[in-house]
Amino acid sequence: MPAWWLWTFYATIAFALVYVVLYPAWPMVTRATGGVLGWSTRADVAAEIARFEAANEPMFARLLATDPAAVAADEDLHRFAVAAGAAIFRAQCSQCHGAGAAGVQASGFPNLLDDEWLWGGTTDAIVTTVTHGIRNETDPDARYSQMPAFGEELDAEEIEDLVAQVRALSHQSHDAARAAAGAALFETNCAACHGAAGEGSRDLGAPVLANAIWLYGGSEAAIRQTITFSRWGVMPAFGARLREAEIRAVALYVHQLGGGE
């Protein structure tokens, strides 16, 4: 063995000793020894994040200065907004709407990918919904609609007739005799909001009943549940949680998921 090999080994030991003094090294009960340089991976990450956030700031400023409907024409800005919006969506929205934005029908969390919108699917309409939320008690401008619980006004037979009529409007299998009886009930109790043919109303937030999309499900059991007890889906207002530019970014992201208008 050449002697330099041995000296190289001693040098690595000396290096380790110096390293132990300068950097975090020995695990103690609650945390490792700090090292005299005070360096930590966490501080490094924080600095790194701050650097990227500072670099993103001009793009957010540009987003704020651009009309949301016009962002799609600016390819760079649109790409930035969609990427930023996707990150915000994962952190703030995916808990209810799902990571893929497909919603959860059993819980009434809307699918954001399809082409039906309760409150409108333009970028501006989505910005309003995200900012103020739906039926919450914190934002006076929250979108608001309320369907009565018909279980208190109609008897069970009448509700069954209505269920058949709603199934008929959406071209699903139904009992024709019950549907004929339910048509009059629908005219009296439902048409004011949902429209005579179940075409819905975005101004009132009344869902379309005559198509294939169901917020809570289109089975007889689900429709019966909805008519009897009503539904009360709530979305928080994000105006206080997110900056205006971030809300626009997340709205642009949702808009390009397949249903944007």
């Binding site: 799902g98 990571a99 893929g100 497909a102 699918n111 990918l113 399809d114 082409d115 039906e116 379309v208 198509n211 294939a212 999309i213 397949g258």
Partner: peptide
Amino acid sequence: NPTFVTLAD
């Protein structure tokens, strides 16, 4: 995620 989407029609 999801594998397919049902549209209004």
